[in-house]
Simulated assay, not measured.
Amino acid sequence: MNKNISKKVGAGIVLYNPELSLLKKDIQAIINQVDQICLFDNKSDNIEEIERTFKSYRKITIIKSSKNLGIAFGLNKLLNWASENKYNWLLTMDQDSICSTNLIEEYSKYWDDPQIGLICPFVITNGKYSLEEYNNLKIQKTSWVKDPVDCITSACLTNVKIAKQLGGYTNKLFIDYVDTDINCKVINNGYKILRVNSAYLVQQMGQGKPLKLFSYLHKYTKLNVFRRLKVAAIYTDQRLYYSSRNSRYVRKTYKDHGAKTSVIFMLMFYSYFTLFYPADRSRIKMWKSIIKGFKDYKSL
Rank of each mutant, 00 (worst) to 15 (best):
K3S: 14
K7P: 00
G10N: 04
N17K: 08
L22C: 02
L23P: 06
K24Q: 15
D26S: 13
A29K: 08
N32F: 11
F40K: 02
F40S: 01
D41K: 09
N42T: 00
S44N: 07
N46K: 03
F54I: 10
I60P: 03
I60H: 07
I60T: 03
T61C: 05
I63D: 06
S66K: 13
G70H: 13
G74T: 11
G74L: 12
L78C: 10
L79G: 10
A82P: 08
Y87F: 15
M93G: 02
M93N: 08
D96W: 03
D96A: 08
S100P: 11
S100G: 12
S100D: 13
N102P: 06
Y110Q: 05
D113G: 01
G127T: 04
K128M: 12
L131P: 02
L137R: 09
W144G: 01
V149N: 10
K161Q: 14
N171K: 12
L173K: 08
D176W: 14
D176V: 13
D179P: 02
N183P: 11
N183M: 11
I187S: 04
N188M: 04
S198Y: 01
Q203I: 00
P210K: 12
L217D: 06
L217I: 00
H218K: 05
Y220S: 04
L223A: 13
L223S: 12
L223D: 10
R239C: 04
Y241E: 09
R248G: 00
Y249P: 00
R251M: 03
K252C: 14
G258N: 07
V263R: 06
F265Q: 01
Y270E: 12
L275R: 06
W287N: 15
S289H: 13
I290C: 10
Y297G: 01
L300K: 11
